[in-house]
Design a protein around this nucleic acid. Structure first.
Lengths: 108, 108
DNA sequence: TATATTTGCAACTGATTGGTTTCATAAACA
DNA sequence: TGTTTATGAAACCAATCAGTTGCAAATATA
């Protein structure tokens, strides 16, 4: 069972769950109300999110509050870093081209 | 066929392809040399990446150069924005707590 | 022109996915 | 104590996935 953050966020329902619990912890029941699927399906998604440590549980009586593990989200951000570097570089290259054009204009 | 950026980056081989072509365009054959899978499997991954516009082709004779569409990568970055906001907020909250503690220390 | 190279596509396969329904467990409450 | 509520786990199912092999088309080269 391959279980990593990227596979976890591939599913749209799981992305929605992640967004919902990003601010406050929520119970599976409360979450399920936001979707067309069954409570059990949501529970299954939560299991996947737990397995890749994107989510942590806080038991409160018979209820379980699920909360996003923000630090794990940074893993995605970390992977994006390499591309961010490139697009910033490309952007500054474009800047240089524009600057050169402007200078040439002033010279003439 | 659900085909979006998030589903595209779920596969580790596709993530590797994306990283490889981020800097220079590459042909399917050249890409396939980096993996244990067949050329056809890589070709299939490229088709998926093309379908969600993460990649663009440049035909050159009988060779096809695949290049990353950086702008599409920003879609992931955009989705992450909401969480980045939260973790920066949490961080500044922590900052405030530390500052309050420090002030109390000075008062005593 | 005949041959080699680069590529994509189709058909098939076993594994995985996301959903369902059913059941078991544990806590809250009457 | 008996019932309701909240939850996870198991068994099943259709669809999708990532890989394979074989083939066709187009370009390059001898």
């Amino acid at each position: 069972m391959r279980r990593d953050v990227f596979q976890a966020i591939a599913d749209p329902t799981r992305r929605a769950i992640i967004s919902l619990i990003a601010l406050h912890a929520m119970t599976p029941n409360a979450l399920a109300e936001h979707f067309d699927t069954s409570r059990q399906a949501v529970s299954k998604h939560l299991r996947i999110l737990t397995e890749c440590q994107l989510v942590k549980q806080e038991v409160q009586g018979r209820e379980i509050y699920y909360q996003l593990e923000l630090s794990k989200m940074k893993e995605i951000d970390k992977w994006l870093e390499q591309f961010r570097k490139i697009w910033e570089q490309r952007f500054s290259e474009l800047d240089n081209v524009l600057l050169t054009l402007k200078n040439k204009e002033n010279e003439s």
